[in-house]
Amino acid sequence: MRVALFATCLVDTLVPQVARATATLLQRLGHDVVVPAGQSCCGQMHVNTGYRREAVPIVANHVRAFAGADVVVAPSGSCVASIRHQQAAVARRAGEHGLAEEAQALAARTYELSQFLVDVLGVTDVGASYPHRVTYHPTCHSLRLLRVGDRPLQLLRAVRGLELVELPRAESCCGFGGTFAVKNADTSTAMLTDKMADVLATRAEVCTAGDASCLLHIGGGLSRLRSGTRTVHLAEILASTDAPPGQFRASAPGRSAELHGGGAR
């Protein structure tokens, strides 16, 4: 299948290895990956901060960039949720009915990674190997807007060598919330503190999730604590194999890949 990859603005700019992992994984599963050059952002941050009018040209750019795609995959629950639940509404509100229709049609062809793998491709064992102790945080938008359910867990359970430990109070929000982390920094930090305590209680080496933004938040906090536990995106785990170097290797715990940044030192 020819799959268009939407890297998302945050992953592309700050954690490109997550997009790389997504591409590697899809290619390994035999698919043809394209990365439309005109892509930037889905508009979610603008909409959720109150700038819905300003978001309209961003949505238009997104729709233009992916116009020729049969199917779009993104390694981000919240961006896909915004594409599915906000883009068309924002365009419609601005009176851009043509754009709204195109956005809606594109949304129907857009998938979050775990949903794409399990529902569209019908695979749970992607041939990955990741010999580490891992806990999974079900990010709010994947959980409640996209209803990904246990798809990420199905995928993780099939990874060789991976020891999956349950996260206590997994369904509570980590406190990121986009601009909430800045506008309500104190409350956000209080929520993050509780999430980190739960992550650390699992004694996992790695906390994973399907959203790079939440992971940046949790990982940034864990890194500041010098906790030794770090965050790795689901796509990176699924992309990693025990093939010799030269193939893709996910940033492993303790071997802080330079690109990933939030290394435990």
Binding site: A7, V11, D12, T13, L14, V15, P16, Q17, A19, R20, A23, V35, A37, Q39, A181, V182, K183, A185, T189, L192, L216, H217, G219, G220, G221, S223, R224, L259, H260, G261, G262
Partner: peptide
Amino acid sequence: PASAWTRARDLPTPPRETFTQAWA
């Protein structure tokens, strides 16, 4: 406003190259 973030969390160093640049 970045200080509101960095008071309690680290921010990774931006990479040398974005994914879309590298891919292109």
